[in-house]
């Protein structure tokens, strides 16, 4: 690990300013992803701004009947929050499907959104990776790509967004609240938060340098069966090959987003009207234009079958 200086500011604006004025600085919250990457020297910040002293750790009701989740609410606490369990079950389920108990106790809401890809070529510093080292190429495209993206990728990068929570946030139409280095706040729709790689795969999100997430807001609850169905290589503690976050009614109508298939949570609202017609009608549209590799073409069928299983569960 490269050495770094460390500070612990006491206000969000102060924290944002500290990172905005130093291009080598990073925020650290739970640290479960950043420290892993720092040990491998994939991330090499020279300064860490510890945001754990900022508060931002409560879940509060909003005036329009939704919830405002502080950026530092731990994954365990969010999954266990009585209001989330009752009204946003898809979010509880997605959180509980991710990582291990130890990691969920540390990992935060904002940090979860910001976790970096688990593409094995991103992690292996001996390999070319445009996300890790812009311009170096992509070893994954002609490499072992079983776990990687089937849609939304580019000629520069086929990495997937690895998280579960954000897939649920996407189907719930969450909004990300931030503050920048000048103390100015803004909101970003979850649909616009994660970027597609294009020719700049090193940039994962639409956050500006130094911009700090302060909260994630959920609109008022959507009725229906809340389902998060995750298919992975082992029963627990593994990343998704394919996941489905869905809120479905008995007639099959509802909303759905997919994880494990793209550089960001993948949702096509225009296809949701077809949900009562069955899974294939929806996935044909959602995955139109997919460019799978030979290794990961199975994900297209798997996505259809996983949605089909979710529809069966909702109709039961």
């Amino acid at each position: 690990m490269k050495s770094f200086t460390y500070e612990r500011p006491t206000s969000p604006a102060e924290a944002a300013a500290a990172v905005a004025r130093n291009p080598d600085a990073k925020f650290i919250a739970g640290g479960t992803n950043l420290l892993d990457l720092m040990k491998l020297q994939i991330e090499t910040p020279s300064h860490l701004v510890d945001v754990n002293g900022l508060g931002l750790d409560t879940v509060e009701a909003t005036q329009d009947g939704g919830l405002r989740i502080g950026a530092l609410v731990r994954n365990t606490d969010l999954a266990a929050d009585a209001r989330v369990r009752k009204d946003y079950g898809v979010l509880s389920r997605a959180l509980l499907a991710g990582a291990s108990g130890q990691l969920r106790n540390k990992a935060t809401t904002a940090g979860n959104l910001l976790q970096r890809t688990r593409c094995p070529y991103f992690y292996d510093t001996a390999q070319a990776c445009n996300k890790r080292q812009p311009g170096s190429g992509c070893s994954a495209i002609d490499g072992v790509s079983r776990s990687l993206a089937v849609i939304g990728s580019s000629e520069a990068c086929i990495a997937t967004y690895p998280g579960d929570m954000a897939v649920a946030m996407r189907v719930l139409d969450a909004t990300v609240e931030t503050v920048d280095g000048k103390g100015k706040g803004r909101t970003i729709a979850i649909a616009d938060f994660h970027r597609l790689p294009g020719d700049r795969p090193e940039v994962d999100t639409t956050l500006k340098p130094g911009e700090l997430i302060t909260a994630v807001t959920l609109p008022k609850p959507v009725a229906g069966t809340h389902i998060y169905r995750k298919v992975r290589d082992r029963a627990s503690y593994a990343y998704a090959l394919v996941s489905v976050a869905a809120i479905l009614n008995k007639d099959g109508s509802g909303h759905v987003a997919f994880g494990g298939v793209a550089p960001r949570p993948w949702r096509l609202e225009a296809a949701e009207a077809d949900l009562p017609r069955g899974a294939k009608a929806v996935t044909d549209k959602v995955f139109a234009g997919a460019k799978p590799t030979q290794d990961n073409a199975f994900k297209l069928k798997l996505a259809e079958r996983t949605l089909s299983a979710a529809l069966t569960q909702a109709r039961a």
């Binding site: 460390y6 650290i28 640290g31 420290l35 108990g101 130890q102 990691l103 540390k106």
Partner: peptide, 19 residues
């Protein structure tokens, strides 16, 4: 490396002592 910190189990390898 699991330890119980402030009442919760965590991976002590993935957190900094200064935090």
């Amino acid at each position: 490396c699991t330890m119980i910190v402030d009442g919760r189990r965590i991976n002590s390898c993935l957190t900094l002592a200064v935090m």
